[in-house]
Write a protein that binds this DNA or RNA. Structure first.
Lengths: 325, 325
DNA sequence: GTGAAAGCGCTAACAC
DNA sequence: GTGTTAGCGCTTTCAC
C-alpha cells in the first residue's frame, strides 16, 4: 500500500499542501469552507500524517530512552512502569533498553540519543566507564546510579536506609549482622547503604562483614554466595540484603543451612516494590519511594530538555515491617 | 544538537555528500584515500548521522511497539524483557506501552504504527473493540489475546493447562474446586483454561464455579473477591487461579478465613514467571514457556514485516510442583 | 486566506 | 571513482 501523503489530500481538496498542513495543525487563518473540504479529503483518503517527516523537521521525536539492567525485576519493573506513565502524560513515548548481560547495549542506547532518534535518556544501568556520558551536557537523568558530574541523580536516601535496616536487626537482638551489596567499585549510590550499615555496627562494637554480589550475575551464583555466607559464618544471626530478591535468596540459604527465619536468623531486604509486597508480603524491608523517584526523574528530564539546569535529588525511605525481621 | 551534517563533512573532506554517504554505508567503489579523508573529517567534526533523516528515506524506523497491560507484573515483565532481547538481536528497538487503566493508550500505540513511527506491534493488552485492528493486514502479532482474524496469536496451550491444574487438585482429593478467570466476554485464549477446568470437573460430576476477575482491576478489588469466595463457599477446598498473583491473593484470603494452605485448601496458580518462582517458590503452578512465546512472537512479526503470511502458534505448558497444591 | 518554495538530513538513481 | 540531483513527507517563512 502506497502511503497517502499531504499532496494527495491537497489535490483531492483542490488546495495547496500548505493549506492542508495548516488544517492539520490548526494554525493560521483558514476559511470554514476550506477546513471542511480538507477534512473531507483526509477522511476519504484515510490520511495519516507521517510522524518521521514531522520529526525530521521538528528535530524532536518525543521518544525517551529507559536503560536499566532488566525490566524483569520487581524494582525496575515498577520503576519503568511509573516512568512510562509519567512520560506518556507529557506526550513522550518510551524506548526500553535492558542492558543486563550486555554492556554494549547501554552504549547503543546512548547512540540513539546522539543520533537524534530519542530526545532524552533515563538511565540506571550498572555498566561502568562509558565515554560519551562525559562529552557534553546531554538531556540525561540517572536513577540510583552515578554516571558523571554533569548528570543529575535521583536516589532514595540510601544512607538512612542502611541505618534503618541495620537498626531493625539490632533491635531484634542480632549480634552478627552480615550485609550484601554491589562490589564497592560500582558507581551506585546504594554503596551508601553499606556505609549506613558499617557505621552502625561499628558504633555497637560489632564486626562489619559485607559480601559483594553483582546485580547482574545469575541467581544461581547469588544463591551460592548466600550458601557460602552461612558456611563462613555459622554464627550469623542477621542479614541485611541490598535488595528484596537477595533477601529471598538469603532466607532460602538460611533454611537450607538448617536455620529458621526469623527465630535463628533475621533477614531484612531493600526496595519494597509492589509486586514483591504482593508475592512475598512477609518480608521485612526498606521501601524506596519508587513512584516518587520516577516522578522526580521525569521532572528533571523535562527541565534538562528545556535546557534548564537541575541538581540531584534524594528522597526518603521507610521501613515496612514483616515477619522476617 | 547534532548540528554537524553530511554536507559539513563533505566540505571538510573536499568531496561530495554522496561520497560521504557511501563511506558511511560502505557502499560502492571508493578509493582508500577518499575513505581515509572522509573518516578523518567525520572524526574532526564529531559527526553523528541523523537517524530520523535516514528513517524518512528508508520508510522504516527499526522500532517495534510492545503493548501490554503493565510491565510491572512477573509475567509481562519477563515476557517484555525476552521480547526486547530477541528484537534487539534483530536490530530493532522497542517502544513500551502499558495500557492498563487507560484503554485509549492501546489505540495511541496503534497510531504510532499507522503514522509510521514504529514498524510493527506486539500486543497483549486487554482492551476490546479497537477498530483499526480490523482495517488491514498490518504487521501485528498478538500474545495470549485474540484481536482480529488477520492477526496471528501466540499462546500457550491453555486448554491443557486448565486440565493439568484441575487434575492436580483432583489428585489432591479436592471436592469443591473453584476457578477464577477473566470475564467471559474477554477475547483472550485463556478462557480455554476455564474450558479445561469446567470439562474436567464435569467429568467428575462436580460443580463448576468460576469467579470472574478482571486483570486490570486493583489488587484490593481482587482481594475482596477472594474473600467473598470463602464466604460464599466455605466448603471450597481447591482453588485454580488464572494467574500467580491471584493465587497469592487466594492464599491470603484462605488464611484470613481461618483455613490452612494446603491442609484445608489447595491452591494452584498459572504463569510460573521467573520472578514469581524466585519470590514465591512454594507455589504450585502451571508454567507458560515465556521465553519461547517471545521468540515465536518475534519470528512471526519478522515474517509479517517481510510480508509473509503466518498462522497462530500454540506452545506447551507444564506443571511446576510446589507445596500449595 | 492561500500558495510557492526552501529546507529538515540523508540516500540512490543516473551521469560523467 | 565521484558528483549532481531528485526525492522521502512535512512545516514554515515570505509573497500575493
Amino acid at each position: 500500500m502506497t502511503r497517502v501523503k499531504l499532496q494527495d489530500v491537497a489535490e483531492r481538496a483542490g488546495v495547496s499542501v500548505t493549506t492542508v498542513s495548516r488544517v492539520l495543525n490548526n494554525r493560521g487563518y483558514l476559511s470554514k469552507q476550506t477546513i471542511q473540504k480538507v477534512h473531507q479529503a483526509m477522511e476519504e483518503l484515510n490520511y495519516r500524517p507521517n510522524a518521521v517527516a514531522r520529526q525530521l523537521f521538528k528535530q524532536k521525536t518525543d521518544l525517551v530512552g529507559l536503560v536499566f539492567p532488566t525490566v524483569n525485576n520487581p524494582f525496575f519493573g515498577e520503576l519503568e512502569a511509573e516512568l512510562e506513565e509519567r512520560l506518556y502524560e507529557l506526550g513522550y513515548r518510551v524506548v526500553m533498553g535492558n542492558s543486563q548481560n550486555n554492556p554494549q547495549k547501554e552504549e547503543q542506547y546512548l547512540q540513539l540519543l546522539l543520533n537524534g532518534q530519542i530526545d532524552g535518556l533515563i538511565v540506571g544501568a550498572h555498566n561502568e566507564g562509558i565515554e560519551a556520558y562525559h562529552n557534553t551536557n546531554l538531556p540525561i537523568v540517572s536513577i540510583e546510579r552515578i554516571v558523571s558530574k554533569q548528570i543529575p541523580v535521583v536516589a532514595a536516601d540510601n544512607y538512612t536506609g542502611g541505618r534503618l535496616a541495620t537498626q531493625r536487626l539490632l533491635d531484634d537482638g542480632c549480634q552478627h549482622i552480615i550485609h550484601t551489596n554491589y562490589p564497592a567499585t560500582s558507581s551506585t549510590p546504594n554503596q551508601e547503604r553499606r556505609r549506613g550499615y558499617e557505621e552502625l555496627v561499628n558504633e555497637h562494637g560489632m564486626e562489619k562483614i559485607t559480601y559483594e554480589i553483582s546485580f547482574d550475575s545469575p541467581n544461581e551464583e547469588k544463591a551460592a554466595i548466600f550458601k557460602q555466607i552461612f558456611i563462613d559464618h555459622p554464627e550469623c544471626d542477621g542479614i541485611f540484603a541490598d535488595n528484596d530478591t537477595n533477601a529471598r535468596l538469603a532466607i532460602n540459604a538460611a533454611r537450607q543451612a538448617g536455620k529458621r527465619v526469623p527465630e535463628d536468623v533475621k533477614v531484612i531486604g531493600y526496595d519494597g516494590a509492589s509486586s514483591t509486597q504482593l508475592l512475598f508480603p512477609d518480608l521485612t524491608t526498606i521501601q524506596q519511594p519508587i513512584a516518587e523517584m520516577a516522578k522526580v526523574a521525569v521532572d528533571l528530564l523535562q527541565k534538562r530538555l528545556a535546557d534548564q539546569s537541575v541538581s540531584s535529588v534524594t528522597l526518603p525511605v521507610k521501613l515496612i515491617p514483616g515477619t522476617t525481621a
